[in-house]
Design a protein around this nucleic acid. Structure first.
Length: 649
RNA sequence: GCCGGAGUAGCUCAGGGGUAGAGCAAUUCACUCGUAAUGAAUAGGUCAGGGGUUCGAAUCCCCUCUCCGGCUCCA
């Protein structure tokens, strides 16, 4: 008997039945065999030592493959568990999967891990790796497995939760489970694994934290240890370097550094104050928001921060959202008020302010509405998760006939918004969330809405995935996710249908046939929250905003005090073109003044000295360029700065 | 909210029962300089806040607040 294996290059090679992956790799080349960590047969990953008994597509997996990295990190997680169980005999272990860039493992322990514990555990891991213990695949029956792991309640729960006949994530399905053994350590696992622990080239533990068993806050709190593993020390170092670089663009660091905003303790958690430069940035973003809303046919409305509690009762927020709302205050004759966490009810009241006809629709109401939400203390995160923030919110009311066109209209708006701020189409993807289990509205409405949302995405050529059951209880939605400069994905815009509010408030319009009809309601945010959006922008651009958004666009640096007069004249020339310009009047050296402007990431630095005064020129340096141009005629310099400083069309 | 770590000058940090420290920033003075840090001097602190232990607390203990990393949450 023989098996025929088709290699990635298309060639087909015959091997004896039961040949191992390693033997096949060896037959291809010794270096490949050395690099091999697993093989893939017909899409299924197998250990190198597994006998191959069927023909098909065959590929050797090395650490260069994504699957190889996955295996490396999975095996690293095993070694972590082995180290912890060795160092902490009373510890029990739960699950430890590979994740993006690394792995973690959750443990039940009598006390949380300290940083010193992590050092000790990591040292133990390195010893296990040095010992080069082979990973051995063990096949157990359910009963055998229950016996082997009898002392580990989480493992027992995993084994018992395996539905016979169906594959679960931790183990192969059926009456049989697999485990991997190295030395005296054994862990439940479907594999595959590296051939031995010595094949882990570079591993490092990063941090520990609490984590709930099965992700459920009502269940045990376990201690999770995060680590990272790479094919080489160099790649590990590069990864750590990337983390440092990401830290440098953290908006919570750049905000104060660039004098944009801060979070004074005296104000309260999750509440920002905006400094003049951040205020300018914010004004520019908000101006852009208003201009685009106007372009897309929205009308501006304003609603108060405080509204009667009864209104929130009508809208259902007190039923569904109360724990995120600030507590009520009682005024006048025991009337209760609450701070708004959303803008919708206010906009609905405006809709209701008079009888609406089909001729009024679509009615598009927008507001830069500041809302306050009580976020749990542990989740506040700079501008990205604040307790007070301003939504670029809008609510559109339309007829069923208009719904398709209107959704597409709104989607187009969201996309233009992202493009305006420098996010490329290729970095935008969408998610269509459909009806969840608990929902309001009629099936007919959901079906229409979900279909029209999908059609709008198709019409705009947006790549999207469907998230079944992930919609809000009140309607399906599209979320727009955007990738930033270092590849992180952020949810920004959203287009959501709402079947709930029109019903709760009894919204109507008069149809052409003179009968009352219920309008459809669309929530749409482009940035989401202005604060969060600026936080993301700050990280995306690492604080070096495109010139049109830079709070200060031009810094004029006089070489000596005698050039101050000309410097002011130069500044005036830039300002006359609408540029935001500052003159550095300090008595520092030229080098220092330039350094400060660069550190503050100003797009243009203009240096003026004796020759410039005489020739009416300037020295021009653009941010990010490590050189400068001398003797640029003033008018040219203004033109050069004005171009990129103009708002995008 | 939960688990851990942390809070000392505007910023970055040292000090860990016995008089509060450095660098950068700030201010002043001198320098007036041609593309990423001129020099000197000065000033700056309820050591997050409150309580306790102690002859004596930034330091040890308790509570609160805030921040950081996760978990959970983000109808």
């Amino acid at each position: 008997m023989a098996v025929v294996l088709r290699y990635p290059d298309g060639s087909e090679v015959e091997h004896p039945d039961g040949v191992t992956g390693l033997e096949v790799a060896r037959s291809i080349g010794p270096r490949l065999a050395e690099a091999a960590v697993a093989v893939k047969l017909n899409g299924q990953l197998l250990d190198l030592s597994r006998p191959i008994t069927e023909s098909g597509d065959f590929q050797v997996i090395t650490l260069k493959d994504p699957e190889g990295l996955h295996i490396l990190r999975h095996s690293s997680a095993h070694v972590l568990a082995q180290a912890v169980l060795t160092e902490f005999p009373d510890a029990t272990f739960a699950i430890g999967p590979p994740i993006q860039d690394g792995f973690y493992y959750d443990f039940g322990v009598s006390r949380p891990f300290s940083p010193e514990d992590l050092e000790r555990i990591e040292a133990r891991m390195h010893r296990i790796i040095a010992e080069d213990q082979p990973f051995e695949r063990v096949v157990l029956t359910r009963d055998e497995a229950l016996e082997v792991f009898a002392d580990h309640k989480y493992k027992v729960e995993i084994i018992e939760s395996v539905d016979p006949g169906e594959a679960a994530s931790e183990v192969e399905g059926g009456e049989i489970v697999t485990a991997y053994r190295n030395l005296d350590f054994i862990d439940l696992c479907r594999g595959p694994h590296l051939p031995s622990t010595g094949r882990i080239p570079a591993v490092k533990l990063l941090r520990s934290s609490g984590a709930y068993w099965r992700g459920d806050e009502k269940r045990d709190q376990l201690q999770r240890i995060y680590g990272t593993a790479w094919p080489s020390q160099k790649e590990l170092d590069e990864y750590l370097h990337r983390l440092e670089e990401a830290e440098k663009r953290d908006h919570r660091r750049l905000g104060p550094e660039l004098d944009l905003f801060s979070f004074p303790n005296a104000v309260g958690s999750g509440l920002a104050v905006w400094h003049p430069k951040g205020g300018m940035l914010r004004k520019l973003v908000e101006d852009r928001s208003r201009a685009l809303h106007e372009k897309y046919g929205f009308e501006f409305v304003f609603t108060p921060h405080l509204m009667k509690a009864d209104l929130w009762r009508t809208s259902g927020h007190l039923d569904y959202y109360a724990e995120n709302m600030y507590p009520r205050m009682v005024m006048d004759n025991d009337v209760e008020y609450q701070v708004k966490p959303m803008n919708c009810p206010g906009h609905i009241l405006i809709y209701q302010s008079r009888t609406r006809s089909y001729r009024d629709l679509p009615l598009r109401l927008s507001e830069l509405g500041t809302v306050y939400r009580y976020e749990k203390s542990g989740v506040v995160h700079g501008l990205l998760r604040a307790r007070g923030f301003t939504q670029d919110d809008s609510h559109t009311f339309c007829t069923e006939e208009q719904l398709g066109d209107e959704l597409r209209h709104q989607l187009r708006f969201v996309l233009e918004w992202q493009r305006t701020f420098g996010f490329q189409a290729a970095d935008i993807r969408a998610e269509l969330s459909t009806r969840p289990e608990k929902s309001v509205g009629e099936t007919h409405q959901w079906e229409i809405a979900e279909r029209l949302l999908a059609e709008a995405l198709d019409a705009e050529g947006i790549e999207y995935t469907v998230a079944p059951g992930e919609g809000a209880f009140y309607g399906p939605k599209i979320d727009i996710h955007v990738k930033d400069a270092i590849g992180r994905s952020w949810q920004m815009g959203t287009v959501q249908l709402d079947f709930n509010n029109p019903q709760r408030f009894g919204l109507e319009y008069v149809s052409p046939g003179n009968v009352p009809m219920r309008p459809y309601m669309i929530h749409c945010a482009k940035a989401g929250s202005i604060e969060r959006f600026i936080g993301i922008l700050t990280e995306h651009y690492a604080g070096a905003f495109p010139a049109w958004l830079a709070p200060v666009q031009v810094t004029v640096v006089p070489v000596a005090d005698r050039h101050l007069e000309y410097a002011d004249e130069v500044a005036a020339a830039f300002a006359a073109e609408g540029l935001r310009v500052e003159v550095d009047r300090s008595s520092e050296t030229v080098g220092d003044k330039i350094r400060r402007a660069i550190t503050q990431k100003h797009p243009f630095v203009v240096v003026v000295g004796d020759r410039d005064v005489e020739d009416r020129t300037v020295g021009l340096r653009r941010y990010g360029e490590d050189r400068d141009t001398r003797g640029v005629p003033l008018a040219d310099a203004v033109a050069q700065a004005a171009g990129p400083s103009r708002e995008p069309a």
